[in-house]
């Protein structure tokens, strides 16, 4: 459970940092699909944002997951709209 309010920026920064460095390590293996999939407006980054907001607002676990799912759905809709 998330019990402590922490700085959203801090969480986001660490999460993004973790993702970017992970991607750097395995950049050669990333398919073009995956790159598009995790572009800044893609569902992955949206989900990260959702998590960061949930953490900073001290949401419970269920609420956090709901928020992440919502963000994924929104961005997927955005992707389909683009199509």
């Amino acid at each position: 459970m998330i019990s402590k309010k922490i700085d959203r920026k801090e969480v986001l920064a660490v999460l993004l940092d973790a993702e970017i460095s992970r991607r750097e390590l395995s950049s050669n293996n990333l398919s073009s699909d995956a790159i598009q999939f995790s572009s800044k407006d893609g569902p992955f980054f949206q989900a990260l944002k959702g998590l960061a907001i949930a953490m900073s607002e001290g949401d419970g676990e269920r609420a956090a997951r709901k928020r992440v799912n919502q963000k994924i759905e929104d961005s997927v809709k955005g992707m389909s709209d683009d199509c």
């Binding site: 999460l15 973790a18 569902p43 998590l51 992440v68 997927v76």
Partner: peptide, 13 residues
């Protein structure tokens, strides 16, 4: 997408 994104999120976390 959600299944794939959640899996990646776990890695990142």
């Amino acid at each position: 997408v959600a299944a794939e994104v959640w899996e990646k999120l776990l890695d990142v976390a």
